[in-house]
Nucleic acid binder design. Structure first.
Lengths: 345, 345
DNA sequence: CTGTTAGCGCATTCAG
DNA sequence: CTGAATGCGCTAACAG
């Protein structure tokens, strides 16, 4: 069903139908005829052809590393809020944490009818930079700092440092166990490198050096955090703090602690003479302020980032360049809040 | 940058470039020239124009109620897996649990370059049925049963019944408290009506009737589950089981229990004479088998649905009609597994 | 207010 | 093997 056929059926020109659809000048009489025909036929205009002409889709594409994440959903909620208030819609593409897929979807969006792209960044490779440098549609990057596009990111280093200081004070108060850290790949400059470096700096400011034997790497998944924690617990028996680069990882660590404690105390029972009161109380910390984790665990020390805010700002930034052709490059760094109140549980 | 300009620069016709791009007949000589020009200019063909011609995008749109959900991410993981193995890409649209937005995005996809649509269903309104009845692109619905499209759904009633039976046996073993249920809107036939009806049936098969005073409604959110649980706990002091329609809600209930117990035991301390040992041990159950919840809580009785499988099947179904024009309507019901092992914590 | 016309960028006949 | 010509469905001048 095309605009032409509608025009013929209604006895008008295709231009008249187009105007009817887009609110141009049309006599009430013809308006009626057209309306009737459209209803009868159940005609829907092809957005594609329209966009091919107008170059304007009122749509933005958002590339995200994964779907099942509270932080990411907070960002997209922010984006969605300003987009819909300004008459835009949002399409998401998820890459399963695979940088190649990121490029793939960026290219998809570049050649599809979207007016702009928001990339929730993880690892910025050379390919990414190349893409950003000559993208033919405006792009803003959230969560990572880059010179090649407008970007909004969080103070991961500062947050890491604050967490490091907190860990140090907790450690000193509890009296002398070891601090462990479970990080993510340093290729991720924000969640990987910056948080870890900040954490080390925070410790150092309290005179503590993070021992490499107490450091593990994890994927951005609970089960991976679980494994990292188990490896830590099996090798070391003097850990009193496990700081994790994300709350998702922290959840896995909590699980591992439960299981490990159970395991140890059972061995203690069977091997008479070993006192099972020997089990050390381990504090787990995270980043991200995950609400589900807080609800179930009662809350662990973590960092609250303004994810929704970064979503809002990124969408505003993007629309500024789409609609007003704003050309001045922007790098925006957002702060954080240390969360250390344990819900009364 | 268009195909024509490339053609001019390479000294060939636009058709030659098109053939180069799509693997048609081209002499090696011209191939080289074109390749060079394309690399120099960084030209990308417009997918839009191509699709306008070919009517084939190798893309499917997926409409989801929310982004931050383990069950939904499992479905989309399944979809993504078969799609990418068959050369398709996937675009997501999230509706924030708002049925109107669902229609909006369904229409968007209908007129955009996607070859098919998968709807992860919540509430099927008249508008939905109307859309499904005369959609001009194939649609499959996941998670809800409908006559108006191919659909794949889960045995929510059976799962509810199994959970009802479990609750009954738990209740009888613990000796006589009350069973409470926190559901979601019955407009959601699957997660709302079917689970609740099944639950009641399961209880009834053990001779127990669910008391309406012990039933609450919640949104699909942790904080809403928290509020529902609080209202329950404040009114009733003889609850020993709270069954929830989703694990997300269950997380909120767990939080509420922690807080309420704390609250009660403090009052007990200040009001001398009240014995705080009086606090009843409440079992919380859910649906969905959320892994983060399991890790942190040690696991609650819940239902594992084959979400990834339903994703896989739905994508296969969709591709069957897209590629082979399969016309026979399909309704597929998938089973479940009752999860009742508490991780050794 | 209205119809005619000329493309948007590309793929596909169809002669050469 | 190749290029010229045609049209996908729609909108934006333009002349009535």
């Amino acid at each position: 069903m095309t605009i032409k056929e509608i025009a013929k059926l209604a006895g008008v020109s295709s231009a008249a139908v187009s105007r009817y659809l887009n609110g141009g000048y049309i006599s009430d009489e013809k308006k009626e005829q057209i309306k009737k025909v459209i209803e009868e036929t159940g005609y829907h205009p092809s957005a594609q052809a329209r966009i091919l002409r107008t170059k304007r889709a009122c749509l933005v594409g958002v590339v995200v590393p994964k779907i099942n994440s509270e932080s990411i959903s907070r960002v997209t909620a922010g984006i969605g809020q300003v987009l819909s208030s300004r008459g835009y819609q949002m399409l998401l593409a998820s890459t399963d944490n695979r940088p190649e897929k990121e490029i793939e979807y960026l290219k998809l969006f570049e050649n599809y009818p979207v007016d702009g792209i928001i990339l929730i960044g993880t690892i910025i490779t050379g390919e990414h930079r190349k893409f950003l440098k000559n993208a033919k549609v405006p792009v803003v990057v959230v969560g990572q700092c880059t010179k090649y596009a407008n970007c909004i990111y969080h103070d991961d280093y500062g947050a890491g440092k604050a967490m490091g200081k907190l860990a140090a004070s907790l450690n000193q108060a509890s009296g002398g166990g070891h601090i462990a850290y479970i990080g993510v790949t340093r290729d991720d400059k924000a969640a990987g490198a910056a948080r870890e470096d900040g954490f080390r700096a925070g410790l150092k400011s309290a005179g503590i050096e993070l021992d490499e034997d107490y450091v593990r790497m994890s994927e951005f998944r609970t089960d991976s955090g679980y494994n990292a924690a188990l490896s830590l617990l099996e090798e070391k028996d003097d850990i009193d703090i496990i700081s994790c680069a994300t709350d998702t990882i922290a959840a896995g660590v909590i699980e591992a602690l439960h299981i490990y404690e159970k395991h140890v105390s059972e061995r203690a029972k069977s091997t008479k003479g070993v006192k099972d009161t020997n089990i050390r109380r381990v504090t787990v910390t995270g980043f991200g302020d995950n609400q589900l984790l807080k609800a179930v665990s009662g809350g662990i020390p973590t960092i609250h980032f303004g994810y929704k805010t970064s979503g809002i700002r990124s969408a505003e930034l993007l629309l500024d360049v789409i609609e007003r052709g704003e050309k001045i490059p922007v790098e925006m760094k957002l702060g954080f809040r240390l969360v250390n109140e344990r819900t009364e549980i």
